[in-house]
Amino acid sequence: MTELAPGTRVRVRDDWPEARGPCHIRTPHYVRGRQGVVVRRLGAFPNPEDLAFARPAPRRALYHVRFDETALWPDGRAGDDLLVELFEHWLVPA
């Protein structure tokens, strides 16, 4: 994947692997399908989705992504936000 520069608007994939069978994912349900902004690249780490099953785990870029509270919750407060660590394969440019 090409690197996502800070400030890039991204959407989190609206995917629910838990509906298809056993899995281990680090993308919380409340951000799936939602839009945020890349704050910075935190590094590259072995993909926990493979590590959890003792499979070979390729390193994936991990980003800090910021979401406005109002983009996540109907009663979110303007100006407040959330920072979530998300792996590159969950992010698509918005």
Binding site: R26, P28, L42, F45, R66, D80, D81, V84, E85, L86
Partner: peptide, 12 residues
């Protein structure tokens, strides 16, 4: 003062 919630979902 705004609040920013940091969810430790991965490696940090």
């Amino acid at each position: 003062t705004a609040i920013r919630v940091v969810d430790s979902t991965a490696d940090y």
